[in-house]
């Protein structure tokens, strides 16, 4: 049997919002370590890899590893029936063909449960090698969302140029062109507001803004986002999921293949 109880139910609601526009269906791979999900978007341009660690749940029981095939649009609709301050419990029997979601109000005076059919999905997974990236940019997640939104008015691609001085985002199109330069933060008193560039070597790559704007749907999960880049490998955009003490409860990682320069 699989059963996981999440006191901060809003976290699962935010995770669903961060993937439902990019993925149609995916399998939650549940094991003793936690709940993982990995899937490509339908055009195989982007890959999502997320994890909710077992110790982020108040109760977590996984008698044996189980893969739950889910239609994400349906799961998202059901999670919209949960209030932000509800406790959410996910349950599935080992040989289940359905998954149950239970939403409890904080005062336990309102309990609702929803059962959803599971799908048989072939769980093909891509091997994502550990990569020493040439550049890792840490910045406020709201700032990254704004840059992707603003530059989208100019064109469908963004050139991200990372040097030791900082990072520049550029876009051009029929309307004109635009550049946004972020300097490294000098004094890092408030970490979540800092821009930190860890550069081994300078990198310049071009990416689709359409996909980056899908990724920024994860911004409510974390005040910070990290962009990891190396020449000729996909960009990794990571939103870490930490608890109030800053301990890791998981992450949402997006991988995006670069555009190929003419």
């Amino acid at each position: 049997m699989f059963e996981a109880r999440l006191v901060e139910g809003s976290l699962l609601k935010k995770v669903m919002e961060s993937i439902k526009d990019l993925l149609n269906e995916a399998s939650w791979d549940c094991s003793g370590n936690g709940m993982c999900l990995q899937a490509m978007d339908s055009s195989h341009v982007a890959l999502v890899s997320l994890m909710l660690k077992s110790d982020g749940f108040e109760n977590y029981r996984c008698d044996r590893s189980i893969s739950l095939g889910i239609n994400l649009a349906s799961m998202s609709k059901i999670l919209k029936c949960a209030s932000n301050d509800d406790i959410i419990t996910i349950r599935a029997e080992d040989d289940a063909d359905a998954i149950t979601f239970m939403f409890e109000s904080p005062k336990q005076d309102r309990v609702s449960d929803y059962e959803m059919k599971l799908m048989n999905l072939d769980t093909e997974h891509l091997g994502i090698p550990d990569t020493e990236y040439a550049c890792v940019i840490k910045m406020p997640s709201g700032e990254f969302s704004r840059i992707c939104r603003d530059l989208s008015v100019l064109g469908d691609s963004v050139i991200i140029c990372c040097t030791k001085d900082g990072v520049r985002f550029s876009a051009k199109g029929d309307l004109g062109n635009g550049n946004i330069k972020l300097a490294q933060s000098a004094n890092v008193d408030k970490e979540e507001e800092a821009v930190v560039v860890d550069m081994r070597e300078a990198v310049t790559l071009t990416f689709s803004l359409r996909y980056l704007n899908f990724f920024t749907k994860a911004a409510p999960l974390s005040s910070q986002v990290s962009l990891s880049m190396s020449e000729d490998v996909p960009l990794m955009v990571e939103y870490k999921i930490n608890d109030k003490e800053g301990d890791s409860k998981g992450y949402v990682r997006y991988y995006l293949a670069p555009k190929i320069e003419d």
Binding site: H44, V45, E124, D156, S157, P234, K259
Partner: peptide, 14 residues
């Protein structure tokens, strides 16, 4: 518009 690469050109199926 620059042509877009696919992610599974970089990461192989397990």
């Amino acid at each position: 518009m620059d042509p877009q690469a696919a992610i599974d050109e970089y990461y192989i199926l397990n």
